[in-house]
Amino acid sequence: MNPLHQYLLLSAMLFSVGLAGALVRRHAILVLVGIELMLNAANLNFLAFWRYGGNPEALTGIMFVIFAIAVAAAEAAVGLALIISIYRHLRTSNVDEVNKLNG
């Protein structure tokens, strides 16, 4: 079994890659992918702390991750629907060009 901090470092790396993707890429779908990566980093943290924590029989980490995955799936579905709708209206999926509300 690896020590705990390796999992935490991997999770931090995953989070940073997701954050960089969400900040740098201009395509709306890739921004969503970055957000998914960040959610997965959080899930990895939950599981690592659950496994290495004092009381794994309580299954709290597992429960939290189950609900987080459900919320992430709902978020992905709604986000992609929004992106498709925006694409239909504005014929673009570049988040910089969606500026109709910009005064």
Binding site: A12, F15, V17, L19, A20, L23, V24, H27
Partner: peptide, 22 residues
């Protein structure tokens, strides 16, 4: 699409700083 049109440096710097802190 998918070219990195926006100058990516600020985003990359922020992400790198977050990783370094964590």
């Amino acid at each position: 699409a998918g070219r990195i049109t926006f100058a990516p440096w600020s985003g990359l710097i922020i992400a790198g700083a977050v990783f370094a802190t964590l």
